[in-house]
Write a protein that binds this DNA or RNA. Sequence first.
DNA 1: CGTCTATTTGAATGTACTCAAAAGCGGTGG
DNA 2: CCACCGCTTTTGAGTACATTCAAATAGACG
Lengths: 194, 194
Amino acid sequence: MIEKIRQNIEQKINQKLSDDEFRLFFDSLSLEGFTKKEILVSEGKICSFIYFIESGTLHSYLTDPNGEIHSIQFGFEGYWISDLFSFLSDKPALFTIEALENTEVYSLSRMNFEKACFEIPKFERFFRILIQNAYINSQQRLALTFSEDAKQRYLDLIKKQPLISQKVPQYLIASYLGIKPQSLSRIRNKLAKK
Amino acid sequence: MIEKIRQNIEQKINQKLSDDEFRLFFDSLSLEGFTKKEILVSEGKICSFIYFIESGTLHSYLTDPNGEIHSIQFGFEGYWISDLFSFLSDKPALFTIEALENTEVYSLSRMNFEKACFEIPKFERFFRILIQNAYINSQQRLALTFSEDAKQRYLDLIKKQPLISQKVPQYLIASYLGIKPQSLSRIRNKLAKK
DNA sequence: CGTCTATTTGAATGTACTCAAAAGCGGTGG
DNA sequence: CCACCGCTTTTGAGTACATTCAAATAGACG
């Protein structure tokens, strides 16, 4: 469904795209499929695409010096996802992005991204908003991490992104919350008893 | 010292500015002074400036629903600081920025920012890098928060930004680390004994 | 010097962690 | 279709670290 992307962009920039504008942009995307557990982006390698998730679920995470993984973001249908740092700076990626189930994405290459920004000012705006949102999310998550306990963060999370409890295994949710799977299990247990 | 800003920009974009380019940009800055405890930006109000710290120390923080403050960033001589979210989106600021001592800043208004980006492509690049860095810092801080304990985060912090221990009161450092002042005091106490 | 704020210290509490093991669940091959 | 294997989730017991509440010291500033 092509319309999903168009709506997504129009909603973010808060204005309509002409058919020509959208066509021009859409032609520079390519549809790709990934199977469960397949890696789209590897920590340490250059990430030259931004992905729009047509269907499926993705997971971005980083690996710390102790070898533990820490979830950064879960991507569902209708989300944009990438390692923006690598994409924008052309340096090695900080995150790995992996498919949690079979997933179809529209991918936009760095080159076509530059082209779209250059040719259509609305896209320059669109991508600025995308980056800005990523930054805000990161800031707000940091704030929540400090001001709320794990139970509250868990409740906030499943309220804000209900898909998570359906699509994402519990040990990855724990990783996103910054706690161990055992602790999340206990938290859920207590909540269920009420 | 005008040269401080010029060097800062050239270093970030990794290329030289012509005298004309710099002059054009520099003329759109205005030098302002703030006294200790004065507020430059208030949570909830629009932030229409980016500040370059000529001398002094600034502190940006947010207030959570319980009324507790959480440090976001400390700004020292030679740093750029702002509420980027508010500045870029023209919506109410998420943070408050306050002077920790008497401080002189060069301020750049939203309008002059747009003008600089429009007239001089190098500045478009410069500001993109500024936003990108803010984003990366935020991500990395999040990662560290999850992978290290408070003692290690404290050691990392004073190693990375030695000025903090000189210029910033301990209870604000604690807030930055996401712990209570009492806990930081105990951590320091233990470290001193070794 | 006195007041206000910041820091330190003590004792009790709580939340998440580790280590360890058991139970649950899903998929594969016999 | 069932038995088995690997992976996820749950549960238990003991521990570690930060928190709370409270009070004492130390420092800064007028």
